[in-house]
Amino acid sequence: MQPRISMIILGVRDLAVPIKFYAEGLGFPRMDSPPEVAFFTLNGTWLGLYGREALAEDACISPQGSGFETFTLAHNVHSEAEVDDVIRLAEQAGATITKRPEKVFWGGYSGYFQDPDGHLWEVAHNPLFWVGPEDDKDVR
């Protein structure tokens, strides 16, 4: 097996709300897709949005759940200033900021936001770990 994550699919309550958040608010490029799902092209993977109930049904589990869902999505950037920029962009798009950016115990700088469905995103600058092309400095 070659380890990789090909696509991240988030179960959402009302497809129109997160589509607006990710496409218009954060500037994620949307792909053509059937009306019951939305796909966005990311650098090296894709993000999918699908109805929470339908996704739970497809996985044969209950759609009920609350609180921390046991994972976060992480977006690593080049600098502390870029962390601030992305958090500000997310907040302007309607995200709930759960942790304002700050220096953290592991030597980096990070903050957290929740998208309209409560999915947690960490935005971080880690001076020891960067994945992405050197010229990729666009926060959107």
Rank of each mutant, 00 (worst) to 15 (best):
I8F: 05
G111D: 04
I97N: 01
H119L: 05
V77D: 00
D115T: 11
N126K: 02
G65T: 14
Y50T: 03
S62N: 14
E82C: 05
M1T: 15
L73H: 02
T41C: 07
V12N: 04
H119I: 00
I9Q: 04
E36P: 08
V86D: 03
P101K: 08
R100S: 14
W106A: 11
S110K: 13
N76L: 09
R30Y: 05
A16Y: 03
R30I: 11
I5Y: 07
R4T: 10
S110Q: 12
D117E: 08
D117F: 08
G44C: 07
G27I: 14
K137R: 15
W121P: 02
P29C: 12
Y22P: 03
W46G: 01
P34A: 09
L47E: 03
E134V: 03
V139E: 05
A124G: 15
G51R: 09
F105K: 15
A54N: 10
V104S: 03
E102L: 12
K99F: 06
P34R: 15
A59D: 10
V12M: 05
L47C: 05
T96M: 11
L10A: 04
N76R: 05
A16P: 02
K20H: 15
I8W: 00
I61M: 08
L128P: 01
A81H: 09
L49K: 00
D84Y: 08
K103P: 09
E122H: 09
E53T: 15
L120R: 09
L120F: 05
D85E: 15
L73C: 07
P116E: 04
G107H: 14
V77C: 05
M31R: 13
G107Q: 15
N76M: 06
F113G: 02
F113V: 00
N43I: 13
F113K: 07
W46N: 06
V83T: 03
F129S: 13
S79D: 07
F40L: 08
A56T: 02
Y50C: 04
Y112L: 14
A81W: 00
E122M: 08
A23G: 01
D14F: 07
G11C: 11
M31I: 10
P127A: 01
G65F: 11
S79Y: 11
P101L: 10
T98R: 00
L42I: 02
R88G: 06
V37S: 00
T72D: 15
L49P: 00
D115W: 12
V77M: 06
G94W: 03
V37L: 02
P63S: 10
E57D: 10
S79G: 09
Y22Q: 00
L55Q: 08
G118Q: 05
T45E: 00
S6C: 10
Y112F: 15
G132M: 14
Y22S: 00
F39D: 01
A16L: 09
F21G: 02
R52L: 13
W121D: 01
A38C: 05
C60G: 07
P35V: 06
